[in-house]
Design a protein around this nucleic acid. Structure first.
Lengths: 233, 233
DNA sequence: GAGTGGTCTAGACCACCAC
DNA sequence: TGGTGGTCTAGACCACTCT
């Protein structure tokens, strides 16, 4: 047994290659438990550190998640897909299959002092307040994304935006269709980071799983955060 | 000297904390060189492995980048920002400051067989072709993002979309304003992964820097990839 | 060649989970 | 209590960069 030990390819990457191939090939299915480190050491004839480096690589790639004391599991894929393709689809059969149930839950609507980054991007006056609307997105019953929208108070005042009620099509649709606003262009800033304990709780995920944070500035600002998705094959 | 060694906090995280604080606090400025591993070992009184774990953590957070044989550097921040706020800004002075120069370069326009994931999401017929428009986005002269837009051929045919020319406001604006299409809603799928050598070259980055891949399905599909951004403090 | 990070090993003890 | 992953050490050799 043992890993091929090809020259110019570190052993830990070769171990990672082998595991990755097993995952992509389906020998290790979604949610499957990887062999423990001790067995991988024996199977590939490498030290524990090399095994751990290999698994760390797969973890960084989002292919597996590790739980202390339990083991390392193949990460289930849960892509958001086929939500709106039916109207434009030429193959109508796709519409029937209609992927997983998507649900958006309104967590709260508040008037708050905006964080500095929002002040900067919206060009707000010092002290100017905004309406913050927070949502939790779920796919197939699993929470996957937190979203927070900041809308300047002078735009939101007197509209359904500042009330705790669901907006058909979201804030953007309301602004564009009912309030006569128009989207010109938008800017996005993407960051990785570790979730706060509160976020990890709301998203039902381990604290060690990185989240992606996307700050989108339109005419209004959309801030949302989601757990890292799974690579598409 | 030596790290505080607070209980219930691994030493490598404490070393990472110290370095992170120095970066956030400005003692280590953008682009600055971190002390070499040997010095960090001595300074904090820990093993090389612990130092390396600490630096790996900061790397995962996107705070630093490491170059083999040269050292570890504080990552320069290059957020996309203040591009379109002026029109809606109440503080017009923001407009004058106008961040960095943003440039979008059209790399190519081709008619191609779309990848399977695009076929799925657009509900294309087997064998149906699409127009692929590829762009390179730069901010302040630095390439930051690759974008590829797939447009079904029956939509693009006979429009400026299928020609090698810049579209004012992008494909979306053309569809919406000139071709009478309307954005209903969109779906996004986010993934992390390592860049291909070709992508690393085009983006002028190290092959070890992860990229974020965002697959956006509108009525048309936008695929684009960008290097991981830098965390906002 | 000197200095840097990259890889690898062997061994130890700790923390968490399940039975 | 046994098995799992988490942390830590000490030492070795390799690969890359700069001069």
């Amino acid at each position: 047994m043992g890993v091929a030990r090809v020259r110019d390819r570190p052993v830990y990457k070769q171990v990672a290659d082998a595991l990755r191939a097993a995952i992509r090939g389906g020998q290790l299915a979604d949610g499957a438990l990887l062999a423990p480190e001790t067995e991988l050491m024996a199977r590939y004839g490498v030290s524990r550190n090399s095994v751990r480096n290999a698994v760390a690589l797969l973890r960084a790639e989002g292919l597996v998640v590790t739980e202390h004391g339990r083991g390392t599991f193949v990460r289930a894929r849960r892509p958001l897909r086929r939500l709106s393709s039916s109207r434009y689809s030429k193959a109508k059969r796709e519409a029937a299959k209609q992927g997983m149930q998507v649900d958006q839950q309104l967590l709260g609507v508040e008037v708050v002092d905006p964080p500095q980054e929002v002040v900067d991007r919206l060009g707000l006056e010092p002290g100017e307040q905004v309406v913050l609307r927070r949502h939790l997105l779920s796919v197939g019953g699993e929470p996957v994304q937190l979203a927070g929208s900041h809308i300047p108070l002078d735009i939101a005042r007197g509209t359904p935006i500042e009330r705790f009620e669901k907006l058909q099509g979201g804030v953007h649709a309301l602004l564009e269709h009912d309030l006569g606003h128009k989207l010109e262009r938008f800017v996005e800033e993407l960051t990785f980071r570790m979730p706060t304990p509160e976020e990890a709780r709301q998203l039902g995920m381990g604290a060690g799983v990185p989240v992606v944070r996307l700050l989108r500035t339109l005419r209004h600002v959309l801030v949302y955060e989601m757990p890292a998705g799974d690579p598409v094959p």
